[in-house]
Computed example of a mutant assay.
Amino acid sequence: MQILHLLLERPDRLLVELVEATGLHENTVREHLQRLIESGYVVPRPEPRTTRGRPRMRYSAVSGADAPSSPVAQRKVRAAAERGDLMRRMMPWTDTPALPEAAHHQLDALLEDLQEAGFEPVVDPAALTVDLSPCEHTREHPEHRDALCAVHVGLMRGVLTEAGGPLEVEGLLPTCDPAQCHVQLTLT
């Protein structure tokens, strides 16, 4: 989470910058980056070189319209859309006709991504809200709530952008309970 938060705050970071910022060993940061790349949350980019040798890698989080695209995230989005289309054909009562097909595909991808991350999201397609309550991350680490919420919102933006459609994350709905998390989406 800390690595993702750093990459969301400022993309295009070198490994050494992440090591200094986190205080973790270089191999630990490298291992976490590899897992984040394999999950489709981070994209590496080789730094241009004018001399011989292996280029240094720069890392960015996949989040929002200006972020780099991840081939892993693209595959996950396509697979989620296919499964969602199949579900809507098999169970037509689950369809929300007011939403365009691209928005359904975004919700499919978002739902699967959140489930994969350990959440039990409840999506209300009519109100365009996502309930992630209770958020075990903030329950276990309430002192890091702001950073955790920023990471989760950033990842949700990345999934919606990667899926390509009219839905965007508007923001978190206010709450007094740190374990409550309700995200408002908007149709653009």
Rank of each mutant, 00 (worst) to 15 (best):
I3V: 15
I3L: 15
L4P: 03
L4C: 07
H5Q: 00
L6F: 08
L6H: 12
L7W: 06
L7D: 10
L8A: 10
L8N: 04
L8K: 08
R10K: 15
R10V: 13
R10E: 09
P11D: 06
D12R: 07
L14K: 14
L14I: 08
L14V: 02
L15N: 09
V16E: 11
V16G: 04
V16A: 12
V16L: 02
E17G: 04
L18D: 00
L18T: 07
V19K: 10
V19G: 14
V19W: 05
V19T: 14
E20T: 09
E20K: 09
T22R: 12
T22Y: 14
G23Q: 13
L24T: 11
L24K: 15
L24G: 11
H25W: 10
H25K: 13
T28F: 14
T28A: 15
V29W: 08
V29P: 12
R30L: 09
E31M: 14
E31T: 14
Q34P: 05
R35T: 13
R35M: 05
L36W: 01
L36C: 02
I37N: 06
E38I: 04
S39P: 04
G40A: 08
Y41T: 04
V43H: 08
V43T: 14
P44N: 08
R45T: 11
R45C: 00
R45D: 00
R45G: 00
P46N: 03
P46K: 04
P46D: 12
P46F: 01
E47R: 10
T50D: 11
T50V: 10
T50H: 03
T50L: 13
T51F: 07
T51C: 00
T51R: 09
T51N: 03
G53Y: 04
G53W: 00
R54F: 04
R54V: 13
P55D: 01
R56E: 01
R56V: 03
M57G: 02
M57P: 06
M57K: 12
R58P: 01
Y59N: 04
S60W: 01
S60Y: 04
S60V: 05
A61K: 03
A61G: 05
V62H: 11
V62K: 10
S63L: 08
G64R: 12
A65L: 13
D66I: 06
A67R: 10
A67F: 05
A67W: 14
P68R: 12
P68L: 13
P68T: 03
S69V: 10
P71H: 11
V72N: 09
A73S: 11
A73Y: 06
A73E: 06
A73N: 03
Q74P: 00
R75A: 07
R75V: 03
R75T: 07
K76E: 14
V77W: 06
R78Q: 14
R78F: 02
A79H: 08
A79C: 07
A79E: 13
A79T: 10
A81N: 06
E82C: 02
E82P: 00
